[in-house]
């Protein structure tokens, strides 16, 4: 039940407690309490809107940066990770297995801005051994949502 409820909210955060209550066969009060508890426990961290910025005038670029670092004796990768994720430009940060340590997804207004961020802010952090920057050319899918496709009901009035 718990997982299904969270999945339902993850797929559509606009559902009201009243709608959720009917759909999940629960009392409205219980739903509100559940959400509150999830928020308190940090299971639900926030509510955002999926926006295809490519359809707006906004100028931006996204880059995926592979970062190799030297882990610190006591805190492993966490201290460096913290220094990186605190930059508002950083959208996503993952510790990876394989050929590099951290995958940093950053957003900037221009390629120049991203290059500046990598050179001046990321590469200069002590413990960062190397970086490799890959610019995103096009976003096809993010968080399960396909970009560039508008959901149209094409079923028409066919069948019985």
């Amino acid at each position: 039940m718990m997982d299904k409820f969270l999945k339902l909210l993850e797929d559509n955060a606009t559902l009201t407690p009243e709608q959720l209550a009917v759909m999940c066969k629960k009392e409205v009060g219980d739903i509100k309490k559940m959400i509150e508890q999830y928020e308190k426990d940090g299971v639900i961290l926030g509510y955002k809107t999926m926006i295809d910025w490519d359809k707006t005038d906004r100028e931006y670029v996204t880059a995926l940066i592979e970062v190799k670092i030297t882990p610190q004796r006591d805190r492993g990768f966490d201290r460096v990770a913290e220094r990186i994720y605190n930059f508002p430009e950083v959208q996503n940060l993952y510790l990876m297995s394989g050929g590099y340590d951290l995958a940093v997804l950053i957003e900037g207004k221009t390629m120049k801005e991203v290059a500046y961020f990598v050179a001046q802010k990321l590469a200069t952090i002590e413990d960062v051994i190397s970086t490799a920057t890959h610019f995103v050319l096009r976003k096809y899918k993010d968080k399960g949502v396909i970009y560039g496709v508008v959901d149209v009901d094409e079923r028409g009035n066919c069948g019985q």
Partner: peptide, 8 residues
């Protein structure tokens, strides 16, 4: 419409 007799 809520007429269609097929899955969405």
């Amino acid at each position: 419409g809520l007429t269609v007799g097929q899955p969405d």
